[in-house]
Design a protein around this nucleic acid. Structure first.
Lengths: 188, 188
DNA sequence: TTGATCTCAGACACAGCTGTCTGCTTTACT
DNA sequence: AGTAAAGCAGACAGCTGTGTCTGAGATCAA
């Protein structure tokens, strides 16, 4: 990442490009490099200076997003306290952050499949111990694999993001609705 | 649809094209007309004989799918019996059918937004009375709009489809997992 | 069997996107 | 103030996909 020293304006450009890419791809997973460049206020060639291919760019934002979300999850201490309470706390904490990266899943989910599931896995992996713990404690359904619960949680977060984005649910109700749905879907 | 009388082989071609389109787009929402033609065992030009544009084709399969699913939902009698039991019954009935059309949502969800939500709406509309009924009876959460519950149900069905497709959950466990998750997510 | 309908095979123009390259100007570091 | 790094503008080739068209052959229907 920090290979060689970059000039300040280069650093700035990269940041703007990454930001624009996340925003553009949230609207349309097929957004072109031209569209991304336009939103970043940069010329298309500039993107190619920093990212050799489109794939490399998507790679970079995916990596960045996963790190970000993983950190947020870890900060919410999934290992502390009673499982259901911990789950509610962690989901609530992750919700706003994850919403921003909503589209990345759509992009990546149509890749060689497992290769990318591994990446999001690294974010979900931060959550898995909590799921296992909850199943062992009898708080979460144990007749399904942990991956099922993780998929359900991810799907519900995305649903919350989409519904809020579409204005079909009040902003101040989303977190409650999401946390409640997750808790209900996962518990026995 | 049945504008003018078509020859039997034309009817056959159309059916094969629609089938192939659903299958192809399930694998990749961006599947090309060439890919669809190939799977249909038909030459690309033949598709254009029956469907003027790619959009018209997607339109046709979407319409077809929505009708199909709506019929299945209606056949499961969402109006009969206790809300939670009715929901379990309806979701179980719709699950296999809906799974096949999994990808159509992905395609359509990136359209002018509300225009398409209206289409799936027509399938979900068959479900809405049940949701409202359950909320009034105190069985379902009433602090969120019915559209929230509908979105959650749709998302969970898609999750089930994806997890089953990826082999992360046993085929004979999916229905149970889905129905349980839906019931838990929606009830108070 | 005959005529209308349909499919096939293959070409075509057109558009959009990707990735590369050029020369020129602006901006940051020391 | 001078040098190196970065951005801009605009062009380019190559590929892929869409939609159209043709002419020849196969298939259905009356």
């Amino acid at each position: 990442m920090a290979d060689r020293p970059r000039r300040a304006d280069a650093e700035r450009s990269i940041a703007r490009i990454l930001d624009a890419a996340v925003d553009c791809l949230a609207d349309d997973p097929e957004a072109s490099m031209a569209a991304i460049a336009r939103r970043a206020g940069v010329v298309r060639a500039t993107i190619y200076v920093h990212f050799p291919t489109r794939e490399a760019l998507i790679d970079a934002i995916t990596r960045h997003a996963v790190e970000h979300v993983s950190a947020v999850i870890a900060a919410a201490q999934p290992g502390a306290g009673e499982p259901v309470a911990a789950l509610r706390r962690v989901v609530a904490a992750a919700w706003r952050t994850l919403g921003r990266y909503h589209a990345l899943v759509a992009i990546n989910s149509r890749l060689p499949s497992e290769e990318l599931h591994g990446r999001h896995g690294s974010a979900l992996a931060a959550l898995e111990p909590l799921i296992v713990r909850g199943q062992a404690a009898g708080a979460f359904r144990a007749d399904v694999p942990p991956s099922w619960h993780l998929a359900v949680i991810l799907a519900l977060v995305h649903t919350a993001s989409a519904e809020a984005r579409a204005g079909r649910i009040a902003e101040d109700r989303v977190e409650d609705a999401l946390v409640g749905a997750v808790a209900g879907a996962v518990t026995t």
